[in-house]
């Protein structure tokens, strides 16, 4: 073998070892969730099931289904509304720079770095006062508001890539502020909406702190229910694993089909990406 071939093989071996590490939990989740309760044994975690048994999925689904739908009712409106808000904000900030925009924007952006514990007590008091405590609409409102910095950031950077000549031509034609947004910006925004939509959907679906403080049964989203399931002493761990798989499925499916946009969101969300 040539030196190059040796180097290549070595590279592949190291990459495969790392890949095994990243896939190890997936293997355990799938293998365990397909075992029957009689077959699960901590000392035989790595063994394949003798025969496929889907009862743990049925069990987990029974536990989590109502919460799963709560998460759907939460994540879909939350994603749509916060994407729209981010889009018009990004348009205003990137295409109509006004004095003070460069001071205002970082002040808004700071909101995405704060630990949410530092707003949690007033938030609960506030939601209680307006009657939205322990409700999905309350949680949607929270995700829209605390999603403003990130959605605005991604759209602002996205729109900065649209040439200003396009807008200038429209201004000369007499098209106004909303006309330009409607006829020029919006049709060019599709991939921006995909990136922001995936980002918001994933974050809202996976979020736990707000969900666990603002909602109680039966309004809890799926991640809170999964945590309760895993904390419960009477639920077997094959059911917990099946539950983890079910709860992770929507974001995993999005990642598998739209991974490219997910990664663009990751990069855009890091400010300098």
């Amino acid at each position: 073998m040539s030196a190059r071939a040796v180097r290549r093989s070595l590279l592949y071996i190291i990459l495969i070892v790392f890949a095994c590490f990243y896939l190890m939990p997936v293997y355990v989740v799938i293998v365990t969730s397909l075992k029957s309760t009689a077959e699960i044994d901590l000392s035989r975690m790595w063994q394949l099931p003798h025969q496929l048994d889907f009862s743990s999925y049925a069990d987990a689904f029974n536990h989590l289904a109502p919460n799963f739908w709560n998460s759907v009712y939460l994540a879909i409106p939350g994603t749509i509304l916060s994407s729209l808000l981010g889009s018009i904000n990004g348009y205003a900030l990137s295409k109509w720079k006004f004095r003070g925009a460069n001071v205002l924007f970082p002040i808004i952006l700071f909101g995405m770095f704060i630990p949410y514990q530092s707003v949690l007590i007033p938030l609960v008091q506030f939601l209680d006062a307006i009657g939205l405590y322990n409700s999905i609409p309350g949680l949607i409102l929270v995700h829209i508001i605390y999603g403003i910095p990130i959605t605005t950031l991604i759209f602002r950077n996205f729109y900065a890539g649209i040439p200003d000549e396009l807008l200038e031509a429209a201004t000369i034609d007499g098209t106004g502020y909303w006309g330009i947004y409607r006829h020029i910006i919006l049709p060019l925004s599709i991939s921006g909406f995909v990136v922001v939509g995936i980002w918001q959907f994933t974050s809202i679906w996976n979020e736990f702190l707000f969900a666990s403080t603002i909602t109680q049964p039966p309004h809890q989203p799926v991640m809170v229910a999964l945590q309760n399931l895993s904390g419960s002493q009477i639920v077997q761990w094959n059911v917990q694993m099946a539950g983890a798989f079910l709860a992770a499925l929507p974001t995993l499916v999005v990642y598998i089909f739209l991974g490219r946009y997910f990664i663009r969101g990751l990069l855009a969300g890091s400010i300098k990406g």
Binding site: S43, E207, F208, M223, S230, T251
Partner: peptide
């Protein structure tokens, strides 16, 4: 490879916690 290394980012910390809790169980 890139997709394998990035996919955990799409998961909730809750899912990660529930699964790794079992992976690091002292007798398993």
């Amino acid at each position: 490879f890139r997709n394998i290394f990035i996919f955990p980012m799409a998961l909730s910390f809750i899912v990660t916690g529930v699964v790794w809790q079992w992976l690091f169980a002292p007798n398993s």
